[in-house]
Amino acid sequence: MNIFRLAGDMTHLASVLVLLLKIHTIKSCAGISLKTQELYALVFATRYLDLFTDYISLYNTLMKLIFLVSSFSIVWYIRHHKIVRRSYDKDQDTFRHYFLVLPCFLLALVINEKFTVKEIMWTFSLYLEAVAILPQLVLLQRTRNIDNLTGQYVFLLGAYRSLYILNWIYRYFTEPHYVHWITWISGLVQTLLYADFFYYYFQSWKNNVKLELPA
């Protein structure tokens, strides 16, 4: 464990908590893409299959449980909570995210480190996580006015990925055998997707204006 990875995990945890806090307190999911949340739930479900078989550390197991419970409860809130669901803008959240699932699965079948069920599901979850933010970014472009909790949520997600890249650089130099090209490339692609959001987020923060994404 290194500081970059710990900071990355904490930032990731914060992003989920910000989202849960937003939905639970103001009972609204305005501006949040259900499709991105469903993709994240699927990412965690396929990545943490080894939750009960491979014990790595208490921290690892605890965090996996938190991410699983929070991502599925966010999906439940937006789908089924009688008040929250009313604020879900399904007409705007139209990204066909099922079109992301199949290519990621096929890619995982072709490019993986080991051809085993667990490894393929793990690789699939990596590729899926890289593109899972797309419905949310498309929704932000559409709705234009981004409330600051949603903006903070996406910002924290981007920060978590950036910190993970620093973690991989650190591990590459400190652990001789640590080479995971698949993780690094899909992680890099994912972080690049946030780049333009970051740019506009900092612009709005610097000029102290409301965050607006170009149409």
Binding site: S57, N60, M63, W122
Partner: peptide, 10 residues
């Protein structure tokens, strides 16, 4: 320790 594991990251 958890460094040796293949997929020890979240």
């Amino acid at each position: 320790n958890d460094e040796s594991n293949d997929h020890d990251e979240l």
